[in-house]
């Protein structure tokens, strides 16, 4: 019953082509059946605009601006989120001092912090990075805290009876042991970060993919809006795949054969699944997908 990989790729490409074909058909025939496609740009329009944009300088400026903002915010959130999560999980004092503040700030959607960011930060740029940071910080913090608390106690006891101190336990037990959970938080975090960087750019940005998309909308350039959306989609996909692959690489030690459903992989590849994590087992192989 197993389909060959080639057949599966063909099937996936066909599915994508069919969706695009349907879009082209509905828009070029100006279908108006409750849903109104008459104003909607056709696939060809979007493709033409896309090609024009790719040739111009603004598109690439927007792209690098958005990427710089999200990467800065996300990396800050990753480092500080893991540090705070470990601290709160391991120290009662830290939990009492930081816990209440974090619990009150956490439910506020990062995008609602736009006024705060405008008041606090001298430049728009820093405000956007701040909002991106806040968006990713809490998922990372919460999953790190849970992962650290769920560590098997004997690992720590073993290192203690080897004479290991606090830092040895942090480096040899806590961080590696919590890594699968931390990457769950990072996967969620990068997704939320994109939502927030785009929204923040729409509200207060200068340049950036979100800013450009909103500009196109205000000047009724719908094809441009769709180019922006496709760009956001591709960027989001690329960054979360990068996080995913890094996570899978760093948590290769997880016993994961049990996650691979029977019949989804060709037999000869099964034995090498653990050694080659970037194999055909993508979604099913990653336990923290369930958190997303």
């Amino acid at each position: 019953m197993t389909r060959r990989p080639l057949a599966r790729h063909v099937l996936r490409t066909l599915s994508l082509a069919a969706a695009l074909g349907l879009w082209q058909l509905l828009t070029s025939l100006n279908v108006d059946l409750w849903l109104r496609f008459s104003q909607f740009p056709t696939v060809a329009d979007v493709a033409r605009t896309f090609a024009d944009r790719l040739a111009g300088p603004d598109y690439w400026t927007d792209l690098t601006d958005s990427l710089t903002r999200i990467l800065t915010g996300f990396l800050l959130a990753a480092v500080l989120g893991v540090a705070t999560g470990v601290l709160v999980a391991r120290s009662r004092l830290a939990e009492d001092l930081l816990g209440p503040v974090l619990e009150v700030v956490r439910p506020i959607p990062a995008i609602a912090l736009v006024p705060v960011a405008i008041l606090l930060f001298p430049s728009n740029e820093q405000g956007i990075v701040f909002i991106t940071f806040t968006a990713a910080f809490f998922p990372v913090l919460v999953s790190t805290r849970h992962a650290v608390r769920a560590l098997t106690p004997v690992w720590e006891e073993a290192v203690l009876t080897m004479g290991g101190g606090r830092w040895r336990i942090l480096g040899s037990v806590v961080l590696p042991g919590a890594l699968p959970g931390i990457f769950g938080g990072l996967s969620v975090g990068i997704g939320v970060s994109w939502i927030c960087v785009i929204s923040a750019e729409m509200i207060s940005g200068q340049y950036g993919v979100g800013y450009r998309t909103w500009q196109d909308y205000t000047v009724v350039d719908y094809a441009g809006v769709l180019v922006g959306m496709v760009t956001i989609g591709v960027l989001g996909w690329v960054t979360s795949t990068a996080v995913e692959l890094l996570g899978r690489r760093l948590t290769r030690w997880l016993p994961r054969t049990s996650y691979v459903p029977a019949g989804r992989m060709p037999r000869r590849a099964r034995g090498t699944a653990a050694a080659v994590p970037v194999g055909p087992t993508t979604k099913e192989g990653v336990p923290h997908d369930q958190l997303v």
């Binding site: 098997t152 004997v154 690992w155 006891e157 073993a158 009876t161 080897m162 004479g163 040899s172 037990v173 590696p176 042991g177 890594l179 948590t251 030690w253 997880l254 016993p255």
Partner: peptide, 14 residues
């Protein structure tokens, strides 16, 4: 000075 050996699963799995 005093090493402890556990019943099971005390090796670091990574």
């Amino acid at each position: 000075d005093r090493a402890l050996v556990f019943q099971e699963d005390a090796l670091l799995p990574w």
